[in-house]
Design a protein around this nucleic acid. Structure first.
Length: 296
RNA sequence: GCGCAGGUGACAGAGCGGUCAAUUGUACUAGACUGUAAAUCUAGCGCCUUAACGGCUACGAAGGUUCGAAUCCUUCCCUGCGCA
């Protein structure tokens, strides 16, 4: 449609300041933000997921927030579909889409357009397969689709089960294909020293708790989100749920959660680090400069 | 001062003559990622070596016994508990 349309992607570990950078860029460069965060898509999960508030948006429209019900399962596939739609809309309006988030897989699915095999989650089959050992699962996979077996992590039950699920629906796991978005794309990554990040994580966690993060979790539970589900969301929701059920005490809650968030940040970096397209910046001004040049 | 127990890698804690650079947990570090991705999974973790069934230094310290010691003996240092 718009031959001149360009895309900006902001990534970085949790608590690095992506949200405010995206808003800043949105304001300066007439953009709209597409959140790429696997937890912020859920309604009612605000404080625990670090969702931007209306006020913090400063008038910059945000997409892909509150698009899912936490009682149901939302996936990368849904995200890619909705994200694509949102970006098309933004481009049509003559504005610049800014994808911003910490979920590497979602960003890859959306921006690089990896074609996720068209096999819906099959809870019945999953339940059955979950009872088997990794070795058994791997043996079955090897006999049914040796190609996928040769590339898969043979010890990861989740991957194994999904592969078998795809085979159940499609016969075999299709070769990985990509349909990237057709826009020139600038990748910006927020770099943070380990110690700095640690401090930011601690500070942010304390602030969230003060704002009522735990009552938010309690409310979700009251509204019908099971403890089990909340625990599966990880981090704030997992440890918050454990604490509210009195499975852990306050001290353990704080200590473990802080550590887990930091570990998560490291995992995020493992994901982003090898991506050579990313321009790592330390200050918002650097990002501004990059974007200015990129858009001109 | 006497009696008993004990000192092991970042910490906790196994090992009690060879197969031990030393089980395990935690911590730490790195990595993977085809519809759960804040999830799920993997690897490394004394030093040297690209790596090794390779070399070196190691189980409080110093000696000793033995073909061989983290493991046995002696002395010393330190810690805990009991009695003075």
């Amino acid at each position: 449609m718009n031959a001149k349309a360009k895309l900006i992607v902001v990534v970085g570990p949790t608590a690095s300041g992506k949200t405010s950078l995206a808003v800043l860029l949105g304001k300066k460069f007439n953009g709209e933000v597409i959140s790429a965060d696997s937890r912020q898509v859920y309604k009612g999960m605000n404080l625990g997921s670090g969702k931007v508030t209306k006020k913090e948006m400063e008038g910059v429209p945000h997409h892909l927030l509150d698009v899912a019900d936490p009682k149901r399962t939302f996936t990368a596939s849904h995200f890619a579909r909705l994200g694509r739609k949102a970006i098309t809309g933004i481009v049509k309006r003559g504005k610049t889409p800014i994808v911003c988030g910490g979920t590497g897989f979602y960003i890859r699915a959306l921006v690089d357009g990896i074609v996720i095999p068209d096999a819906k989650p099959n809870p019945k089959l999953r339940k059955k397969l979950e009872k088997m050992s990794v070795n058994e699962l791997f043996e079955i996979l090897k006999s049914k689709d040796p190609e996928r077996a040769s590339t898969i992590d043979p010890k990861n039950p989740r991957r194994l089960i999904r592969a078998l699920e795809i085979i159940d629906a499609l016969g075999k796991v299709p070769e990985l294909k990509k349909h990237p978005l057709p826009y020139p794309t600038l990748f910006i990554g927020i770099a943070r020293e380990k110690e700095t990040l640690k401090a930011l994580i601690e500070k942010r966690l304390k602030a969230r708790i003060k704002l009522g993060m735990l009552s938010e979790i309690k409310r979700l539970h009251t509204q019908g989100v099971s403890w089990k589900k909340l625990e599966s969301f990880g981090l704030e929701y997992r440890y918050g749920a454990l604490f509210l059920q009195k499975k852990i005490d306050k001290e353990t809650f704080m200590r473990e959660l802080t550590k887990q968030i930091f570990d998560y940040a490291k995992r995020q970096m493992t994901w982003f680090r090898p991506d050579t397209r990313i321009h790592w910046i330390k200050k918002p001004a650097e990002a501004e400069k990059l974007v200015k040049k990129f858009l001109s």
